[in-house]
């Protein structure tokens, strides 16, 4: 799927941006691991604890799975019940994806945005801070991940509709040696 050259220029650019963004997010994983490890050491050796660091790990954790949902979708990482799907022709698979994106993904993500805007705006209005002493005073930013998650999914959904449309009409070959980690293992 990493080959974007045959897609319309605008879509291809979006797709590359999405790829770059997802790869950047992945680094948060190792940073959060190191911070969490430091928390353990600090507590075990120095008997100190930082609520700020604890919350920092949580912020990174939430950022990864909310913002990388679209990146994972791009790499077909969201699990499918593929008992029939895997036996379908590439054209039929593309059809399932197009119909699924339009009737399932798009409404859900639109609804996530619609239902969360007020919720997030209220948090910004009061510049909501942590409910714990010493916590990170940016709850409003954390909550903003919700509509952001949905917006990124919608953008990726548009890209994938175009890509699957191209596959369906035979303009690009179905992805075979995709750069997905799942294949590399075998």
């Amino acid at each position: 799927m990493s080959d974007t050259t045959q897609l319309p220029a605008f879509i291809a650019a979006l797709d590359r941006a999405s790829e770059w963004f997802g790869r950047s997010l992945a680094w948060l994983i190792i940073i959060m691991m190191l911070i969490q490890f430091a928390i353990v050491l600090l507590r075990y050796i120095f008997s100190v604890n930082s609520i700020f660091m604890q919350e920092l790990v949580m912020y990174m954790h939430a950022s990864v799975f909310m913002l990388a949902a679209a990146y994972t979708f791009r790499h077909d990482g969201h699990v499918r019940v593929d008992i029939f799907y895997r036996g379908m022709t590439p054209r039929r698979q593309a059809m399932v994806n197009i119909v699924g994106i339009i009737t399932l993904l798009m409404p859900v993500m639109a609804f996530v945005i619609a239902s969360s805007l007020g919720y997030v705006a209220n948090s910004w209005r009061i510049m909501e801070t942590s409910s714990d002493y010493g916590g990170i005073p940016a709850v409003f930013a954390l909550k903003t991940l919700i509509p952001l998650f949905a917006a990124l999914m919608i953008v990726q959904g548009i890209i994938e509709v175009v890509r699957n449309g191209y596959v369906f009409t035979g303009r690009i070959p179905p992805s075979v040696g995709d750069d997905n980690h799942l294949e590399e293992r075998v």
Binding site: F73, V79, R80, G100, L104, P107
Partner: peptide, 21 residues
């Protein structure tokens, strides 16, 4: 819906939302 093979999470949420609509 799950049987068609669209991602599980989106099938769950999407079908539910269509019913809500």
């Amino acid at each position: 819906v799950l049987m068609f093979g669209f991602p599980v999470a989106l099938s769950l949420a999407g079908t539910a939302l269509l019913f809500a609509g």
